[in-house]
Amino acid sequence: MILSDADITALLITLKLAGLTTLILLLLGTPLAWWLARSKWRFKFVLEALIALPLVLPPTVLGFYLLISLGPNGPLGSLSKALGGSSLAFTFTGLVIGSVLYSLPFVIQPLQNAFAAIGDRPLEVAATLRASPLDRFFSIAVPLARPGFLTAAVLGFAHTIGEFGVVLMIGGNIPGKTQVLSIAIYDHVEALEYTQAHWLSAGLLLLAFLMLLLVYAVNRRFGMVQR
């Protein structure tokens, strides 16, 4: 076996982190994206800029502030301690919180665009066909925004797998706990273990390509059915 046990563990932690992050982002992001797509609030743009911040911010900056707020004296860290937990820095929970923030725009923006593209008309039609607002959301908006959900899920997942800076700042590099693949690769390179670095890197490259392939293939097919 070319991959060591530590590599396998890092892979599993990475998949768990990305999966959990994507799930949380879809659950929180769907109502938020819906609100952003529908609301006519004049200061909405402030919120939109805030959500887009991780797109341009150096991950170390986000990681630095997260480290402070998740640490024993930070607001989130103290909250966790007050609830009987420990400080969140250097924990898997801390990693999840960091990843959710870091990948937020990658999930919100495709969803918001997909919801906005539906327009008012199908929802108005549904309203005149006796569908309540919640009913309209689930029976019309969600199915019509299906390509947006796929894009959001894949981008959120892939982007979380690829994160490095935030994880390094707040997760440390604890093997079996917070060591993820991208950091494992870094360690291998530092130790001049190029064979392992190659295997892990090529694996991630392939995975990323396959996921994007899925998104583009499905969106293309869906696009044709729409027209």
Binding site: R121, P122, E124, V125, A126, A127, T128, L129, R130, A131, S132, P133, D135, I140, P143, L144, R146, V225, Q226
Partner: peptide
């Protein structure tokens, strides 16, 4: 009374069928 509680039918200028 919100639209979904009004006993009416509405036909829009464009058919606006649900494409899904």
């Amino acid at each position: 009374l919100p639209p979904h509680r009004r006993p009416l039918g509405y036909v829009f200028q464009e058919a606006s069928l649900f494409t899904h």
